[in-house]
Design a protein around this nucleic acid. Structure first.
Length: 832
DNA sequence: CAGTGAGCGAGCTTCCGCTTGACTT
């Protein structure tokens, strides 16, 4: 048995390191954190020096046990978790657990760290162990406690003031704020008209266009021409003074270098994969995880193709640079190889740099060579990572920009620019994508004809074009991640899940891959930034990081740090809970007066979302209510649109048997009702205009569906049914899958009873509390165990209803037609 | 599963950051 036990966080890492260290070492993975605060109230006690109540994370219990078992027979323990704050804490927690289980007696415990997975780095680390840094651990505990205190105190305020089940946190709330504030900017934006003037030059060699640079002795600026009359006048004047030609007044040629982008971090990988491959952040991470864990490469066996994908570091190991340079010289020639390697340093302040940048584990695994073993998405992502890493060590590109000034007479000038590549350098392999095009991009690759000063260039036409400034764009997943990283909010391992939280809470929706805040999202963002300003400030995390750094350097103590935060925070929570009015917090609006009743019309945010209301609860007769339609927002709805909502339900007519047919909008969208049967409208149907024949058709379809749903009915509640995922058995309470080799139609009652008994227990719906999916259920499910073994049943019972409801919610949401986005078309450029 | 929204107040929700698998109605 191995004498030494070494613990790392990731099992893939454990596998690799095992190979490097040989027989004397047994390498195990902790699978991330092993202990965490109990996920309920009172996990941190501010009254008792912020004492923290930890427990082993359920899903990692088996890994902890494996570590404990191996520790028992080992002589020495090496805790080799990541070298950052979180990694130090994991090591400490493992040590604490082992101490509690009395497994450390008579053993030596070492802390070792490395920031790259190479044989050299690992051996070096093992040769130079150190002790656990309690300062670093305490910095982590402070971070953990603060996040808990913010989240578990702010969220309940939202439950009381806005809506049940909502959440707030140090990271998610500023992220939401960004999206909500961008929406306000867009709504407040007033498009400005401006005109550009271009000369269309008919040079005998090449036709080209030139932008107006100077008009009647004055430098031409964006808003110098803001209406058609002025633009036309300017154009005519230019036409008159130019007299059919422009004279070359000046030629400037400038050479400049372009340097390759640094190798990928999590954030830049997510951005570039979105730009170039159209991947979502979670897609990118999933594919990268697969490449990291390993791919079967024929004779070579299973090989991890990339280094760790959750990193904020841009540095590369010496070995990696060496190999990249070899490949560059071999594949692209010695002139593509700079004399010295390029070293990159991190710009983001909160970087913890526990890993290398994301790179191929070996540059020798060229994309073309491994392509056969990868699926489509893996191939694309690997190629991107490989090229970026190779390019970052290549020669810079040399570009030449030629600018020609053309005199139009009357002290007016046009300028044409063209940029050509003198030496492509790294551009031969890879160039980073861009989010927004600018004028310079248009010039790129454009080659102007050879001209000389004094030469007259024939003028084909002078064009004046109308433009409108455009509002700032809504955030995409990638641009949100970029913004978060710039503020130091969130970590590489959480970028994708932050987005998931905002979506799960229904704070935002993705529309054409851009974030739009919902009414609830806007209400929460506004409430928090208005009443808890400093805690959802974009700089809150950065300031916290400074303090945590001081703690980790041993200059400050973590308890006073928390004390300093907690007192004013708690006071604010208490005060706001008392004083803030609920309808103010939810952003209620008065729209005007209903002409029919003379009563005021309001939009408010209720338990089930935004709704319009005519009259108030103090009136003699009760107010009437109507939910807003999908796509409508309480921030933008008009009185007329709101009144329209009250036209439902409509009576369409009667069937022969005297049953009434009505159409209305319910929780699950527009529907036709016939007796007690409801049939959903299709996306192309409009509840306001639908007529009787179409409604009857929908009713008939629904009846048919119900008839076909039942494959077999045994009369005792047990049925064989047709569902979304194919046929299944149900006793009304519990469902069972049908084995592949069984024909559903031929199942006997006894077989069904047996299958139902064998099926896993599924509790009934969680009733009215099942509306939202807790982020945790989707993400970590910490409180859930397999119902087997010693797990308390309660945990499983708790989780399932929420998950079920969440699935339904999304399914129901797909049904209504997407509102066609009305877009302005004329705008081409934005100022600044 | 299908028209709720106030208020009464059972019991309930919620954070961030480390890591990988599990499985539908």
């Amino acid at each position: 048995m191995a004498k030494n036990l070494l613990i790392v966080e990731s099992p893939a890492k454990a596998k690799t390191i095992n190979k490097y260290l040989g027989k004397d070492f047994h390498v195990l993975a902790s699978y991330g954190h092993v202990r965490d605060l109990v996920p309920k109230e009172g996990a941190v006690d501010p009254d008792r020096h912020f004492q923290m109540n930890y427990e082993v994370i359920d899903r990692n219990e088996k890994h902890v046990d494996a570590i404990a078992k191996a520790a028992k027979v080992a002589d020495s323990l090496y805790l080799a978790t990541d070298l950052d704050r979180e990694g130090e804490a994991i090591s400490w927690h493992i040590a604490e657990i082992l101490k509690q289980r009395k497994l450390l007696e008579g053993k030596t415990l070492h802390r070792v760290v490395f920031s790259e997975i190479t044989p050299r780095a690992i051996k070096e680390a093992v040769a130079h162990p150190r002790q656990l840094s309690m300062d670093l651990v305490n910095a982590q505990q402070a971070r953990r406690a603060l996040d808990y205190l913010v989240g578990f105190n702010l969220s309940p305020v939202l439950w009381r003031k806005v809506q049940r089940g909502l959440s707030a946190g140090r990271v998610q709330s500023p992220a939401l704020r960004m999206i909500a504030e961008r929406e306000e900017e867009i709504e407040a934006f007033k498009a400005r008209e401006y005109w550009t003037i271009e000369a269309d030059c008919a040079h005998p060699d090449t036709r080209f266009k030139a932008r107006l640079l100077k008009l009647r002795g004055k430098k031409f600026e964006q808003f110098d021409l803001t209406n058609e009359a002025d633009a036309m006048a300017a154009r005519s004047a230019l036409e008159r003074s130019a007299q059919g030609r422009l004279v070359v007044a000046n030629i400037e040629s400038k050479e400049r270098k372009r340097r390759p982008a640094p190798p990928f971090t999590t954030s830049t990988l997510q951005q570039e994969a979105a730009r170039k491959l159209g991947f979502s952040t979670s897609r990118t991470m999933k594919i990268a995880q697969g490449l990291y864990e390993g791919v079967a490469l024929g004779d070579e066996g299973v090989v991890g193709l990339i280094t760790y994908m959750r990193t904020d570091a841009v540095h590369l190991s010496a070995e990696a640079i060496h190999e990249l340079r070899d490949v560059i010289a071999k594949d692209y020639g010695p002139q593509a190889l700079p004399e010295a390697p390029h070293y990159y340093r991190n710009k983001s302040k909160n970087a913890q740099e526990a890993h290398e940048a994301i790179r191929p584990t070996s540059a020798l695994h060229r994309p073309r060579a491994v392509a056969a073993y990868l699926n489509d998405e893996q191939r694309k992502l690997y190629e991107l990572i490989w090229k970026r890493a190779v390019a970052c060590q290549m020669q810079h590109a040399t570009l030449n920009t030629v600018s020609v000034d053309l005199d139009a007479g009357g002290d007016s000038l046009f300028r044409a620019s063209g940029t050509t590549v003198v030496d492509p350098g790294f551009l031969a392999v890879y160039e980073e994508g861009r989010d927004a095009k600018n004028a310079e991009d248009d010039d790129e690759g454009r080659k102007l004809p050879k001209m000389e000063i004094g030469e007259a260039v024939p003028l084909a036409a002078i064009d004046a074009d109308q433009h409108f400034t455009e509002p700032p764009p809504r955030y995409s997943e990638a641009s949100l991640v970029k913004a978060l990283e710039e503020y130091g909010i969130g970590r590489p391992s959480t970028y994708a899940s932050i987005i998931q939280v905002l979506l799960n809470r229904e704070y935002v929706t993705l529309d054409s891959r851009r974030f739009r805040p919902t009414d609830v999202g806007r209400a929460v963002a506004k409430f928090l930034s208005g009443h808890f300003t400093q805690y959802v400030d974009y700089d809150f995390t950065a300031k916290l990081e400074d303090e945590l750094d001081a703690v980790s350097r041993g200059e400050e103590d973590w308890v006073p740090l928390l004390e300093k935060f907690w007192k004013p925070f708690k006071a604010t929570v208490d005060e706001k809970s008392e004083t803030v009015d609920r309808s103010e917090a939810t952003g209620a609006r008065e729209l005007g007066i209903d002409p029919k009743s003379g009563k005021p019309v309001q939009v408010r945010l209720g338990r089930y979302g935004p709704f319009a209301q005519i009259g108030s609860k103090d009136d003699e007769d009760k107010p009437t209510f109507a939910s807003l339609r999908p796509g409508q927002s309480m921030h933008t709805i008009t009185l007329a649109e709101a009144l329209e909502l009250f036209k439902l339900p409509r009576k369409l007519g009667q069937t022969d048997d005297g049953e009434e047919i009505t159409v209305g909008v319910g929780r699950f969208g527009p529907f036709v009702k016939h007796g007690s049967m409801y049939a959903s409208l299709k996306p192309e149907d409009d509840p306001y205009t639908i007529e009787l024949p179409r409604a009857l058709e929908l009713v008939r379809e629904k009846a048919e569906l119900i008839a076909n749903r039942i494959i077999k009915d045994f009369g005792n509640g047990i049925q064989v049914l047709n569902g979304r995922y194919g046929p299944y058995i149900s006793d009304g309470d519990k469902n069972a899958r049908i084995p592949k080799d069984k024909e559903p139609r031929e199942l006997t009652e006894a077989e069904c009873v047996e299958l139902l008994a064998a099926a896993p227990n599924r509790p009934k719906r969680g009733g009215r509390f099942g509306k939202k999916a807790p982020a945790k259920a989707a993400k970590t499910a910490r409180s859930t165990k397999a119902p087997a073994a010693d797990a308390p049943k309660k945990a499983a019972v708790k989780k399932a209803p929420a998950k079920k409801a969440a699935a339904k919610k999304t399914a129901a949401k797909k049904a209504p037609a997407k509102k066609a986005a009305a877009r302005k078309t004329a705008a081409k450029k934005t100022p600044g």
